[in-house]
Design a protein around this nucleic acid. Sequence first.
DNA 1: AAAAAAATAGGCATAAGAGCCTAATTTTAT
DNA 2: ATAAAATTAGGCTCTTATGCCTATTTTTTT
Lengths: 216, 216
Amino acid sequence: MMPYRIMLAEDHLLLRDLIKNSLKSVPHLQVVGEVGDGLDLLESLKSVKPEMVILDIGMPGMSGIEAAKKIKHDYPETKVLLLTMYKSKEHLTHALEARVDGYLLKENAFKDLINAIETIREGRFYISDIISKKIVELFFYKSHHESQVSKALSEREIEVLTHYAQGKSPKEISDLLLISYSTVRNHMSKIKKKLSIKRNTDLVKHAIKSGYTSVG
Amino acid sequence: MMPYRIMLAEDHLLLRDLIKNSLKSVPHLQVVGEVGDGLDLLESLKSVKPEMVILDIGMPGMSGIEAAKKIKHDYPETKVLLLTMYKSKEHLTHALEARVDGYLLKENAFKDLINAIETIREGRFYISDIISKKIVELFFYKSHHESQVSKALSEREIEVLTHYAQGKSPKEISDLLLISYSTVRNHMSKIKKKLSIKRNTDLVKHAIKSGYTSVG
DNA sequence: AAAAAAATAGGCATAAGAGCCTAATTTTAT
DNA sequence: ATAAAATTAGGCTCTTATGCCTATTTTTTT
């Protein structure tokens, strides 16, 4: 069988090492490169042409989803498996929009990782059982019970929330984005309604959970 | 050689699986248990008595550092290796105060994990090269430039910060703690000065990092 | 016993945010 | 083509927070 060439994009060296170790026991899989951030990834892809990229969302510099979009645009043949701890609706929605080939949670088992790789290698789409439920729910509620579920944030709303969670005040955000203070306030209000959030501290927590900012 | 019995406490199943896989190749090391949060860990330790616990800080429910303190108090013979992505002064300080036996970053390599386990097994203390520099720096500033380093919060200040990070407003906190609004404000002001924090969002992040509240 | 830190509380002026609207323009989806 | 959503912006009132002080009592440390 032809070796299936995989590139690892993940900022924690330990996790990269562990995945490499464990994939060695699968004969036809071959790790042909590894990078620690999104920019290095795009640079490496110019020379190394893997069949698949396993991509962590929570990387410094460029988010995994941004990187995924670029990869699927520049190298449509290359498969992308997102590996992430995040299971928020925003992440799911944006990952699906980026046309990734698989979405695996870090709370899944190693055998699920193998399963994901094999499924994608066969040309199919992989989602972990844990989030497939979420997608069904998301789709179901989108059609029938719009109000029950917190809606996905828009691009601009995510931008505003990200800045807010990184410590910018509404006033500072309006200066940054070159929009009026009223607009920022309107966005904040919409964000809170969409997420059913009352308190600002929960906005920060939501942003952390969603990977828009980090605690560090 | 006697097998060295290790328990894994880490909320991501994938990482647990990968560590287990990779440790299998080291003959005398044996993974005798695994848990996904701090409460399960303390429960499991009642029956399983491992020589070492490998402990992730960022777990839901109870922070790794709190868990570490309890372990070192209840089972002083049990070695604790902290495995974390955080390298802030607060984390280091709290980890050292909890008397853990090792502190390894997720950006270290797998060989460093082995090295850490072996070092601790021989009764010595392990810190990763990346953070040993930080500790030296921390010690240096503690002796000579006290003002540079953020001071520890008092019990009451931690109480106030915890409630704040959990979404309570200063007014609500004053009702909860049966003290006046002015007092809460005074505490908040002191907290910010001690931590050199300007923005409220950073207060939430600090509380999360310190384990006073969780993102979930 | 003396000193330092912690916990308590208040004043006062200014700045900022929250809640709750309306509404126009643009973009996207159906 | 039509509808829906997103993005923009403003008004108005009320509440809340902020910054920067002072000051007393209690607790802890030296």
